[in-house]
């Protein structure tokens, strides 16, 4: 067999093999690509179409052009929800990044018990969101909860937290700061990727700790920072849904109505799939814009790095 193939020429053999490899590759990719089409691409197409339809999921869709978009523009709640979502992003993402970086810097060194500490720092991240929401709902209970008990214990004022439009969103931001395991692990890995020589050289040149941090560590982990920021932005939409759905339902007085909660209510409460789709597009455009901005920054950073 080998002989005969050999006679046909190695080139042809390799080509056949490669073709086979490809076929195998595509075969193995089938479920994944099927999932991509069914779970991502097809919904994206249908949902784009629904933006221009009136559809209550019972009767067939009716094409209405831009009616849904105009309805959203008229509705004050859209602006409130977008504002709330942006407020959350603007506070939560930077603080989460900072927290993850601090954790990574603190826990990167080998010292006794560091494995335990890393596990503990990651632990809140794995708590299921339904349970996690209840923990904080209890912790921030204005009268009986431990947070206000601690505050009163040290003589500080005890706010009403989720009952007060001024502080409600802060609770969501605060509780998100404990679930930063993902960013922490990525930054931990990034820190360990930095070659020791850089620091050795810096030390020879007489650089101090702060300088090393600002000149070596931070620039080198910056791309990872942006990656986590992108992921944070995207996931915060899901995060604000489950937490606000379980904790406040949008109260007090719309202070915690975030965009995904509005999508859910519009579609699954009021049967308005058309405006729901238009709202989803708002979510998508918003997160897309933010991620796009970060990508541009990333490109600038890496361009500088090249130089």
């Amino acid at each position: 067999m080998e002989d005969r193939l050999g006679a046909l020429g190695g080139q042809a053999l390799r080509r056949t093999r490669r073709a086979w490899g490809r076929a195998d590759g595509w075969l193995l990719l089938t479920p994944y690509l099927g999932g991509v089409v069914l779970l991502f691409l097809l919904p994206a197409v249908v949902s784009t179409a629904l933006i221009f339809a009136r559809y209550d999921a019972l009767a067939p869709p009716v094409w209405v052009g831009l009616e849904n978009v105009n309805a959203l523009r008229r509705e004050n709640l859209t602006g409130t929800a977008a504002g709330n979502s942006l407020y959350f992003l603007a506070l939560a993402v930077p603080f989460r990044l900072l927290g993850a970086l601090l954790l990574a810097l603190l826990l990167q060194r080998r010292q006794p018990g560091v494995g335990f500490l890393r596990a503990v720092a990651y632990l809140p991240t794995v708590i299921p969101e339904a349970a996690y929401a209840l923990i904080w709902l209890w912790a921030f209970n204005p009268l009986y909860g431990p947070v206000n008990a601690l505050l009163r214990g040290v003589g500080l004022p005890a706010p009403s937290w989720l009952a007060d439009p001024g502080t409600a969103k802060l609770v969501f931001v605060f509780m998100s700061l404990f679930q930063i395991g993902e960013g922490f692990v990525v930054l931990l890995a990034a820190l360990q990727e930095i070659p020791t020589e850089y620091y050795d050289t810096a030390e020879v040149l007489g650089a101090g700790g702060t300088q090393m941090l600002s000149r070596i560590t931070l620039p080198l982990v910056a791309p990872w920072f942006l990656l986590i920021a992108c992921r944070d932005i995207v996931l915060s939409f899901q995060y604000t849904f489950t937490t606000s759905y379980l904790m406040t339902g949008g109260d007090p007085y719309y202070a915690t109505v975030f965009l995904p909660l509005l999508v859910y209510e519009e579609a699954f409460d009021r049967f308005r799939f058309g405006t729901g789709s238009a709202l989803m597009a708002v979510v998508f455009v918003l997160s897309g814009t933010l991620v796009g901005i970060l990508c541009v920054i990333h490109r600038h950073l890496s361009a500088e790095h090249e130089r």
Binding site: V36, L38, L39, F40, L42, P43, A44, V46, S47, L50, A57, C230, R231, V234, L235, F237, Q238, F241, L259, P260, V263, Y264, A267, F268, F273, G276, S277, M280, A281, V283, F284, S287, G288, V291
Partner: peptide, 17 residues
């Protein structure tokens, strides 16, 4: 790119599908 799609943006049409 798929990792950058917020899950809530897909609920509704996934439900219909």
């Amino acid at each position: 790119v798929l990792l950058l799609i917020p899950p809530p943006a897909l609920w509704l049409t996934r439900f219909v599908l």
